[in-house]
Simulated scan of single mutants.
Amino acid sequence: MKKNLFKFSILFLLTAALLVSIITSCGVSKNQEHSTKPVQYAQSEVPVTIEYWHVNTENFGGPTVRELVEEFNKTHSKIKVTDKFNPNSYTGLMQNL
C-alpha cells in the first residue's frame, strides 16, 4: 500500500511540475513588444539559385521536371532553379551528398 501511495505521489508531483512549466513558458514577457509590422528582408539584384536534384530519367519524368523548372523560372525572376539528374536512382543522390 505504501509503495502505491509513493508512486502516486511521485507521479502527481511530476505531473504538477510539468503543468507549471508548460503554463509559465507560454506567457509573454512584460518587456516584449508585439509588432504588427511585416518583416523586412534584404533585397538582392542577384537571383537566388536552387539546384533541384532528382532521379527522373528521360523515360520516367525527366522531361516533365525540366518543363516544370522552366515554367517556374519564367514566373519567378528572383529565383533560378536548375535541375540535376542523379543517375543510379537514390544511390546517385547519396553520392552527391
Score class of each variant (00 low, 15 high):
S21I: 04
Y90R: 06
K7S: 06
A16P: 07
G92Y: 01
N4M: 10
T91Q: 13
P38M: 04
V81T: 06
S21R: 04
E45W: 13
E71F: 06
V65A: 08
N88P: 05
H76T: 02
L11R: 05
K37V: 09
K80R: 09
S25W: 09
K37Q: 10
R66Y: 12
K30D: 06
E67M: 11
F72Y: 02
E67V: 11
K80V: 09
T36N: 13
Y90I: 07
L13S: 00
L68T: 07
M1R: 09
V46C: 10
T64L: 14
V69E: 04
V28P: 12
F60A: 13
F6C: 03
I50C: 02
G61V: 03
Y52F: 15
D83Y: 04
L18E: 09
K74V: 05
H76Y: 01
N86V: 11
L11T: 01
C26D: 08
G62E: 02
Q95C: 11
T15F: 08
G27Q: 15
N56Q: 03
V46H: 10
S44N: 07
H54S: 00
S35C: 08
V28L: 13
L19P: 05
Q40H: 14
I22E: 10
Y90Q: 04
L68R: 13
A42F: 14
E45R: 09
H76A: 00
E33Q: 15
I22L: 11
S35L: 09
L11Q: 03
V55T: 05
F60W: 15
L13T: 00
L93P: 03
T64D: 15
E51W: 12
S29V: 01
V55W: 04
Y41M: 13
T91D: 12
V65K: 04
T91P: 09
F85V: 03
A16M: 07
E70Q: 14
P47A: 06
H34S: 13
F72K: 02
A17L: 03
V55E: 05
F8R: 03
D83S: 05
A17T: 03
T75M: 11
T91L: 10
C26H: 07
S77F: 10
G62L: 00
F12W: 02
E45P: 09
V46F: 08
N73D: 02
N96Q: 05
M1C: 07
C26S: 08
Y90W: 05
V55S: 05
T82S: 14
S77T: 09
L14D: 06
V55I: 06
S77Y: 12
S77H: 09
L68N: 08
E67P: 12
T36A: 12
Y90V: 05
P38W: 03
C26V: 11
R66N: 14
L14A: 09
E70M: 11
W53D: 07
P38N: 02
T15E: 05
S77D: 12
K80G: 07
P47W: 02
S29R: 01
V48L: 11
K74P: 01
K74A: 02
P47D: 07
K3T: 09
Q40M: 13
E58Y: 15
V48R: 13
Y41I: 12
L18T: 08
T75C: 11
L19E: 06
K3A: 11
A17I: 02
L93Q: 01
H76I: 01
T64H: 15
K84H: 08
F60V: 13
I22A: 07
E33R: 10
V28C: 14
